[in-house]
Every structure is written in C-alpha cells, then in structure tokens.
Design a protein around this nucleic acid. Sequence first.
DNA 1: TTTATGCGGTGCAAAAAATGCACCGTACCT
DNA 2: AGGTACGGTGCATTTTTTGCACCGCATAAA
Lengths: 297, 297
Amino acid sequence: MKHFQTFALIEAVARSGSMRKAAEDMNLTASALNRRIRGFEAEFGSPIFERIPGGVRLNPAGEMVLHHYRMSKSDFSRVQSQVADLSGERRGHVRIACSQALLPYFLPEQIAKYRAEHPGVTFTVKVRDRAQAEQELASYASDIALVFEPVYLVDFEVLELVPQQVHAILRSDDPLAARKELRLWECLDAPSVAPDAKYGVRHLLEFAARRLGRSLSPILETESFELIRHYVLHERAIGFQIPIGLQAPLDGRLAFRPISKKDVSPGSLILGQLRGRTLPVASARFAMQLAAALHRE
Amino acid sequence: MKHFQTFALIEAVARSGSMRKAAEDMNLTASALNRRIRGFEAEFGSPIFERIPGGVRLNPAGEMVLHHYRMSKSDFSRVQSQVADLSGERRGHVRIACSQALLPYFLPEQIAKYRAEHPGVTFTVKVRDRAQAEQELASYASDIALVFEPVYLVDFEVLELVPQQVHAILRSDDPLAARKELRLWECLDAPSVAPDAKYGVRHLLEFAARRLGRSLSPILETESFELIRHYVLHERAIGFQIPIGLQAPLDGRLAFRPISKKDVSPGSLILGQLRGRTLPVASARFAMQLAAALHRE
DNA sequence: TTTATGCGGTGCAAAAAATGCACCGTACCT
DNA sequence: AGGTACGGTGCATTTTTTGCACCGCATAAA
C-alpha cells in the first residue's frame, strides 16, 4: 500500500543498517531515500535514526515508530481481508511460524485441505524454533504460530494445546521395536540421534535423563529432524521425535514407539497467536481448522 | 501527517456526504479528490463508498477503513507524544469529553493547574452527555471522558469513580435552607427546576421519586445547568445538581443542601478512557492528575 | 414534459513532488 | 597517507498529482 511506503523504507533502512544498501533493496537511489527519511524526521518532530560511523541505527523513537508501522500495517491488512471476505471472495494470505515437526505431514495436509475449499488463499510458512516463533508474532511477521514447548508465553495467546509424548524412532528390526512402549533407560543405553539443544524434544529428554541420574550422549546431534529419521536406517541407533511428525513409511523399515510417561513427561504442541490481536479472516479461519485438527490428534 | 492524507480526505468525504463539498473543505478540486478516492478503492481492492443520488455514503468496508484510520492516527500521535516526552519536551494535546457539571469549577481549575506545570500542553474540551461521551472515546475523537452516571460502559475503562450525592439548589432565604439535609419529598412539594431527561441527576431523581410513589413535575426543564443555578434566584424553586458543579457564590444568595441518601442514592462521577488504549503521555498524565483530584473530592 | 441543478467521472495540460545523477565533506580502516 | 564507504546537497529530469473544462446522468423544480 502506497501510504505505508515511507515506513517500508524506514524498515528497510533499519534492517540493513545503511541507507545506501536499503536504497538498493528498495529500487531507488540513496539520495531519494535519504531525503525521504529526513523529510519524515522533520515532519515527525524528532530523528528516528542515530547516525553512526558506517551507517545508521534506529534510536528508541525509531523503534517506536517501526512498531507502530508494523501494527498499523497488520491491522490494515486485516481490514482488507475482512472486506474481501464479506464480499464473498475468500481471498487472503496466511503467515505461519512453526516447528519443524509439522513440516512432513501435518501442515502440508492442513494447507492442502484449506486450499481445496478456498483456492484464493495463499500461505507463507516459516520454520522457527520456539523462541523465534514468538518473536515472529510479536513483530507482526507471522499471524499464527504452531510450536512444540514454547518458552516465554508472554504476549502469546494459546488457541489450542495438545500433549505430545516423545517417541523413539528405530529400525523395525531393532529388538526394542518388538515392545509396545519403551523405557527411557533402554533408549539411553543404545546410541542415540538427538535434535539440537534448542528443541523441545531434546529439552524434555535431558530433563528426564537428569532425573534418572543419566545423561543423553548422542552420536549425532542435528537441527534437522529429517536427518534424524533417515539416519537410524543406516546405523543401529535411536532417534527422537513427537508423533505428529511421524508416519510409518510404506516400506516398513522404521518403527516408532512411545517412551513411557513414567520417564518422560509429555510436552505441549501449542497453537497460538499474538495476544489481543484480531487476525485477518483467512488466518483466523485456518487457525480454527488447525485447532480442530489438533484436537482430534 | 502526510501519509494519512488520503484517509483524511476519506473522512472528510464521509462527513460531508459529498465529494465536492469535501473537496472544498480540504482545499482541492473535486476532480483531484475523486481520483484519490478511486485510486484508494482500486488499491484497496473494494469500493468504500456507496454512490447514491446526491452524493456518496460509506459502505461497510468504508466504515472499517475509517475505523482503522482513526485507530492508527491516534496510535501514531501517541508515539509522537511519547517521543516528545522522552526528549523532555512535555508537549502534547489533551482531548476531553465531559459532563456539564465539570465546566464551572473543576475542569478549569485542573487544566490551569496542569498547564502551570506544562505550558506546552494544550486542551480540547467537548461537552457531551453520558452516551455521547462514550461514543467520543470509541471513535478516538477524545482521549479521556469525565461523566456522571455513564450508560453503557462497554469499551469504557474506569480510571476513577467518585460517588456524588444529588444536591438541591435554593435561595438562601428559603425556609428549607435552614436545614442541613433535605428529604426528597420536601423538594417535590416545592416547584422544581430540573435538568433534561438525558442527564444522570434527573434520572436519579425520577427513579427515587417513583419509589416514593411521587413524580417530578418541573416548572422548568433545561439542558443548561447554568440556567438552573441562576433561575432559582428569580423565583422560589428548587434546582438540582451534583456538588462538583457547585460552589457558593460570594454574595451568599444561593444555598446547596444534600438530599438524604435514604431517598436518593448517590450517582457516580466516572473518569474513563477507551478500554485497552494506550494514551498519549500528556493525556495519561492529566488523567492521573484528575484521578488524584477526584479522589480528594 | 422540459429545464435546471448538482452529482460523479474523465481527458489534457500545468504544477508539484519525488527521483537520479554528480558531487561534497567526513569518519574509519589499512 | 590513501582508499573506501557513509550521509548529505544542488540541479536537471521524471513521475505524480492537481486544476480546468467538460461529459453523462439522475433528481427536483418549472
């Protein structure tokens, strides 16, 4: 939208820390950009950038301005979306920040389902860890978040919460695969393939292991859940993941077994939005669909 | 602010119901205005005005756009005010909607007191009845409201509440003036001068009279509290008012006596703002001063 | 029914605003 | 000391906005 143009320029400058770089990003010359910034500052009544050697940086006033911009922009697009909705168009764009575990099965299925009913709606999916996901909401960069074991929960409004028990991922020919449920110490005895420390699954495991006086010493530690799933096919090892990210492949070479609740307490997969915010129609409806689907999980 | 210009034009058109009139108000030609409106509608994706014979009218989409604008504008000026504040300037503008009773003594004193400390702050005072005052807040036309016995209280956040007993206004030579406190039936026997039905004082009196099986039959009914105060000097009659709007004139010709709480229950004088809104610095500080002053009443 | 008035909308030329280019002074880094 | 990259500015150029004149249309008065 045109009336936000100056703010968009400000945001670009803030992001790149340099007027010239921002000017290039936004397809105009540094001089024009410079004048717009200075024009805004004059009109606003106070500088919003601190001029530092090598570039510029937002000052506190600028931070406030930028926050105002992001709020306004998001509210405006909400209005736009609601208007489109009441004219029966069912258009819109949904921005989601989610944990990795939702990528292989849950989200693609849900998005496809939604788009089957509303082909005019488009999606942006950002993969974020639990801390970043909340940041995404707070800066109005995403509309809804779907994360496992979020951390702060400030300004985070829970729309749906579903407990997820940590599961072990192992080869189906592994002796342990014969069991219905595994105990944690059984898993700790085997070589393990674990997600990075920033993930909720790892956190739950470490906590539970410490309670047993043991510790997790993975032979492979990674940020990629996909790598975990595939690695256990190549070496006898145990991976960990929550069930929503798991689905038995057709060839039957992998098995998933829950770890006993006596050892590892279930974590929460949480669907949420920024507290107090009114979402655009498409996002709100999609969030409702997600909530219903999670409820059935 | 320049980036709100198009919205300001939209607001002007909505207010006057005509592009040509609005164009004149905003000092540009109808053609330019027309193009800006159409340009906005195109960019927005939907018409916001309904073209009717004789002019235009906002459609529901337009209502939403206008509401977004008023919110954004108010938030932007809050940011501006906070920035000015943190640079130590103490500038700003406070917009108040209040009941008539506050005009003679309370508000002028409070405003003068505030301006003595912060000469850079200016004020707008709108006199509104209790229903209109809440409307003022909801449309972001005023920052704070100070009203007697507000009606709806939806989206109205109470900052301070002070009970006010209805007082009778009479000539000091009236026999009843000898009493410390009056009973309602005494007042009903005398000719009365009452505020209009939309005011809280009248409402409380009617309610109390009905409880006694009596009714108020004023010889003079008016919207002007000032007229009430002055009329009782000319004919033996009883006026009604809350004490915050009363202060004995120097010549001692008027007397004010509370009506017994046994007959008329006290009403509430309420200071409030729009629920959930963050006020500009000056308004917030002035509201705090008002709250403190009311607390002492 | 005719006429008159006022409305929104449009083509075109003039005015205003934003932009691009070339250049300045300055602070930092090598 | 020299090189580089930064923000800022004067001026010609381009883009956008505006004003004027005018159209078609609907309502209201003659």
